[in-house]
Design a protein around this nucleic acid. Sequence first.
DNA 1: CTCTCGAATATTGTATACAATATCCAAATA
DNA 2: TATTTGGATATTGTATACAATATTCGAGAG
Lengths: 241, 241
Amino acid sequence: MIATYRFDNPLADRQSSPEMIAEALRRAIIEGLLSPGESLRQENLAKHFAVSRIPVREALRQLESEGWVELQRNRGARVTSVSAAEVREIYEIRAALEARALRVAAPMHTPATLEYAAKVLRASCANKDHSRFARFNWEFHLALYAPADRPRLLSMIDSLHAQGERYLRLKLDMPAHKRRSDDEHHQTFTALRDGNVDSAVQILEEHLLKTGELLANYLTQHLEKRPANRDARRLNRANAA
Amino acid sequence: MIATYRFDNPLADRQSSPEMIAEALRRAIIEGLLSPGESLRQENLAKHFAVSRIPVREALRQLESEGWVELQRNRGARVTSVSAAEVREIYEIRAALEARALRVAAPMHTPATLEYAAKVLRASCANKDHSRFARFNWEFHLALYAPADRPRLLSMIDSLHAQGERYLRLKLDMPAHKRRSDDEHHQTFTALRDGNVDSAVQILEEHLLKTGELLANYLTQHLEKRPANRDARRLNRANAA
DNA sequence: CTCTCGAATATTGTATACAATATCCAAATA
DNA sequence: TATTTGGATATTGTATACAATATTCGAGAG
């Protein structure tokens, strides 16, 4: 008996508890609810998620290989603190990968995919709210690369973007930068639409490198002073069954 | 009290058992002792490594986010099978990243770093034995990028290389390809040494793309027929305390 | 014979318990 | 006061036990 029904079973691929826990923690780190350097106690997390420490430990292992937390033998986990140099490097890698993605995607774009990208770009420009803007912003990048049909490349880009996102919010505060970012996105899109692939790729690359540079400078100026080593608070309130 | 002694404590950063287990499994996958699709039973692995299933599970989680195994809820882990398209993609990503690494490293190279790269290249050319050749081969790539001082970029490249390595052995059998590979490495090195950075980067990129293409073609021809779904044998002999 | 169904078995998921290790703190010493 | 030291406490690491789920296999229906 194979494939009895034509419709999916949503229960079949619902994620495991370690995955759910990892996702919740990842989001908490991105949103700044957990700050760099903050220590994550297994017992507290277990109480918070109303499970034992076993699935928590597995979630932490996963987050470690994704680069969100650092594990020290017998000394627990803490949220990784990313240095200015690392932020610069992340954006440099994104530049290389997204340039390749755009180049591969360019000839596969259709009027429909271009129209979708344009729509997302308009939505991004129109939004002043942080989280909405960030979402549309990223949606635009994804719309540019989607036709490339490179799952692994896209997933690496996505992961790097997520890593950088928690620092991006620092920059997004400044309206001048939003305007410039929107503008550079627009230039990329126009060049792509008009068939100037080389130019589109170059603008995109420079956009990313510039953003990385900007963030890195911001971090060296504003973040070097703070130690950011205090303990977890927000998630340590044990509020479980 | 800080830094009482000048000498290292080797016990301080010895890795945890999940890490050791993950490393052993990774190596087993690379060396082909564990084939794509093979299922990994927690109990068997636990007996093999003489531990309980807890550290084994954590190792499997880590290997999952590194892309070596796939976990299915309640249905265990199996070694990922990489399709021809994915191999092509891996090498395409490597091309983008290693091109960037070489470009960044080029101006930082010194006579000493170049001499080291040349030495490794000679060792690589001289070796006919698979595993030695593969090691020197990779050492040469690393020697090219090391002066770039981009830890994150290098670690991503290293991870991608490891992912591809288990398929590379298929290709390394053919002496014609070894010769061509050595030759292309030599061209890259010469161009770099003579200051022709653009040319060096271009040769390197084409070398990687060509290798990916070659491997992908080989896989479509020789591997599509085999299902590769049989169970674990080699590691399933429970030989623990 | 083929398919269905259910019990027996195998395997995974995780809560608990305990051992190993790290951290904290106060008394003791210089 | 500053430093050391030993024990109390906190935290992590993992073996075990059991519950939840998947898989196997054989008996019975068609």
